[in-house]
Nucleic acid binder design. Structure first.
Lengths: 248, 248
DNA sequence: ATAGTGTAAACCATATTTAGTCCAAAAAAT
DNA sequence: ATTTTTTGGACTAAATATGGTTTACACTAT
């Protein structure tokens, strides 16, 4: 007994992370292995997995066990199975923020904002507290004070719209809008900022901002909605104009 | 306190280390090792640990000791054990997405979808290719075929709406909608799914889906918009009803 | 002496695995 | 067009694996 005690001690020094060496068999272990293979991208979206009978040979187990493992993956929504055809991956791998930001065009961004921001306005008018309005007012002053150069204006503008998103009191909305904002700073937008954000347009955007703030503070939903649509439509128009000018 | 005073001059000096440091090989030491292995992600969520008899061999100890260690992990809420099946990890490692998903209420989710999905419909009507429509049709058939149980319906429903998002040809929109969908599977929604997704409502949702598909295929923007608003308004109504019922 | 811990072995109830067979749908070959 | 092959779906009965429980014994520290 005592000898075993000491053996355990020496064993421990040799293998500090012992449990990792233990692999789990059975359908659970196979499901985990396949799951990791899919998540690691070994099998891409819509690709076909090996047939059940084939997997049974590879994993040196019976077909029933493979079926059990695949059933779990199906429950997780990672694969779809079709008689006579095979088992196909339905799991979509998430790309990193930076990647999506790099391939997102400013026009795609505006299209998304045209969906999100009017809803933000609706929820803001309904849910904004006095504190939210105050935070928005400060953001407004800041963006108005940063109207000199395109870079700082763009940053302050994003902050103002984020303050508006926070008025919704909807955490998911704020989280989403933050992600959207990130694509603004990393994407192709940076290249066009200088040419689009001329003083005249900045002045117009600021007028929109101020009116937007006032209408939300007054809880005037229709006027606020009109303003945000004007704002984004104008931004889209300026963008399309810039693209046209560029390609000419 | 007793012997130590008496023998403090003899061999007591030979054991300066703490009792915990000495008993690293006992059940508590094994529990700590397994706990660490789980926290390090060697065994992921819902994965199975090696069987008790197997662990006993690996750790060169008896099954009783292993059981004692596992009992502690169970008390910590890190594992769940089932007769005839095994010991499964219940500890969830933190990830960026799960955090926001856990605090997002289903109502917040609907509010966000009410902003995004009508815009998806607009862009889908404008930009969907024949291939997109076909993909949407397949998703429609799938969701109609998965209307038996709430779990599979919910997943197929998410896929249908994602297929719709892909019709926009806007990568940022697709990416955003994927993130929104993720909160559906991890958040508080899972707890309410069963009570909300009764056959009658699933039938109504399916009618919406089919009409939505037809109107997008026909490029009838107004009808498609009406449908998506009906769809989400009804979903919100069902949700509010469930919450009210719950609190009564 | 006593309580606590570890080892060992046997048995129980349940769950899983296995090794088959047959079927239906899709795909491939003819 | 028809036949053949491949694929997943469904089911069965026996064998195996799993955690839960009990019992007996040895060692240690109090």
């Amino acid at each position: 007994m005592r000898q075993q005690y000491q053996e355990i001690g020496s064993h421990e020094d040799a293998l500090p992370s012992l449990p990792e060496a233990v692999s789990v068999g059975g359908s659970s272990g196979i499901a985990a292995k396949l799951r990791r293979a899919i998540m690691d991208g070994a099998y891409g979206l819509n690709e076909r997995l090996p047939a059940e009978r084939e997997l049974a040979e590879v994993f040196q187990t019976s077909r029933g066990t493979i079926r059990e493992a695949l059933r779990r993956l199906q429950e997780l929504g990672m694969v779809d199975r079709q008689i006579g055809s095979g088992t196909f991956v339905t799991y979509r791998q998430f790309s990193e923020h930076t990647e999506i930001a790099d391939v997102t065009s400013p026009l795609e961004l505006i299209e998304v904002r045209l969906g999100i921001e009017p809803q933000i306005v609706r929820l803001a008018v309904a849910n904004a507290t006095a504190m939210d309005i105050e935070r928005m007012r400060k953001a407004l002053l800041k963006v108005e004070g940063a109207s000199d150069d395109p870079e700082s204006f763009s940053r302050a503008d994003a902050e103002f719209h984020l303050a508006m998103a926070e008025c919704t009191r909807n955490r998911l909305m704020v989280w989403l809008y933050q992600l959207v904002n990130e694509t603004r700073s990393h994407g192709q937008w940076t290249a066009m900022k200088e040419s689009i954000l001329v003083p005249e347009r900045i002045g117009q955007y600021n007028a929109h901002h101020r009116h937007l703030y006032n209408m939300i503070a007054k809880r005037d939903l229709d006027a606020a909605l009109d303003t945000i649509y004007d704002h984004l439509d104008k931004a889209r128009g300026d963008l399309v104009g810039a693209v046209r000018t560029r390609s000419n």
